[in-house]
């Protein structure tokens, strides 16, 4: 059995075994990841999709920090009931500036991809501080600390923007310089609400018939 005798050689040689494992386990990743890194439709923004402004970016960073993705998805699937409930299904081109992606893997709360503009700023603020004051049986935790922490304390907005700029996101040096001013006088809750209110607004109706070039 030449197959097994070949294997006997692998078993007797640690180096070969390590090499074998590395080669065999890299194939799948190479095939699935490399094309996605080069595919234009996954990197090109569609509709009105834009980079996050300073305040919205702070809001997004808060969303990540508090683990909102653990209960809320941002990915509307092309299933009829889902589209009826949440709006047009999500296209890859809407997420090109999302670092990291926040599609989520669990809905303990509703999908948020097109939550932008659906509720007033005030509603959003009140809901974030104490969800049960506006949604009776909600099991969402409250985030009272967001109301008392300034948006400028969340992190170093200029350093953050510079990092994103280095990664290729279209921020100008002027954007980075003006960023702290945009946060002045605002609390973390304002930032988070600003982020939520722009979610899904990159979509415009011209995209409705285009099922996304990603297929």
């Amino acid at each position: 059995m030449s197959g097994l005798s070949l294997h006997k050689r692998l078993e007797n040689n640690a180096g070969l075994l390590v090499f074998g494992i590395l080669v065999v386990s890299s194939i799948g990743g190479l095939v699935q990841i490399i094309p996605s890194l080069t595919q234009e439709s996954l990197k090109t923004p569609i509709g009105n999709t834009q980079v996050y402004g300073a305040l919205e970016l702070v809001g997004r960073d808060i969303y990540v920090r508090e683990g909102c993705s653990v209960c809320h998805s941002q990915q509307i699937r092309p299933l009829l009931a889902e589209v009826k409930r949440y709006g047009p299904y999500s296209r890859a081109g809407e997420f090109v500036y999302d670092r990291p992606f926040l599609w989520g893997s669990k809905r303990t709360g509703p999908d948020l991809h097109r939550i932008g503009g659906k509720y007033s700023d005030t509603w959003q603020k009140v809901h974030l501080i104490n969800p049960r004051s506006v949604v009776e049986n909600s099991i969402m935790p409250g985030y009272p600390w967001l109301a008392v922490r300034p948006a400028s304390s969340t992190g170093n907005i200029q350093a953050n923007l510079r990092a994103l700029q280095r990664l290729g996101d279209p921020y100008t040096d002027a954007d980075i310089l003006e960023a702290p001013a945009k946060l002045e006088g605002l609390m973390e809750v304002d930032a988070l609400v600003a982020y939520l209110q722009q979610l899904g607004t990159g979509f415009d109706n011209s995209m409705a018939d285009n099922h996304g070039a990603e297929h």
Binding site: E94, R99, N156, A163, L167
Partner: peptide, 19 residues
């Protein structure tokens, strides 16, 4: 890409990051 000691952003974005 690290921004500060406490915060960084992935080199991948959106759908690529998901994959």
């Amino acid at each position: 890409m690290p921004a500060t000691l406490l915060k960084s952003y992935p080199v991948y974005a959106g759908a690529q990051d998901a994959i």
